[in-house]
């Protein structure tokens, strides 16, 4: 167990760990984006329930600026679209990195030669 691993395998392990970290970072980002999307969707639904002439404020830094319902709905729709796209990108990245991880893992298993080593 404590015998020195060949440099090539050490290298592969380091790569695997790096990829794992990347995957975790992406997962965290994706999670945050998902939360923001959910929040935006909820706000949009809430606006939908209001009358057209309802008074709505949008936060601009510390200030609240008065706007109307439809304008805010438009802004939120745009925001939803942008976040949705970002989510797709992140999902694709996640998938790619997952594939790379599995691939490297296979390579490492073969290099080590013992199939049941995790």
């Amino acid at each position: 167990m404590s015998s020195e691993l060949p440099p090539q395998i050490q290298n592969q392990i380091a790569q695997l760990q790096q990829i794992q970290q990347q995957a975790q970072a992406i997962a965290v980002q994706k999670n945050q984006v998902e939360v923001t999307l959910k929040e935006t969707e909820l706000a949009f639904e809430e606006l939908d329930k209001l009358d057209v002439d309802a008074v709505v404020y949008r936060a601009v830094g510390d200030l609240m600026i008065k706007t109307d319902r439809d304008k805010t709905k438009e802004t939120l729709q745009e925001k939803k679209d942008t976040i949705g796209l970002r989510l797709q990108t992140l999902a694709r990245q996640e998938e790619r990195i997952q594939k790379r991880f599995t691939q490297l893992q296979e390579q490492l298993k073969q290099a080590v030669g013992t199939p049941d080593v995790q």
Partner: peptide, 14 residues
């Protein structure tokens, strides 16, 4: 008699 309530995503409603 008017309260402004935040509904998320930086939007508040009277």
């Amino acid at each position: 008699d008017k309260i402004i309530v935040g509904i998320g995503a930086g939007v508040s409603v009277e």
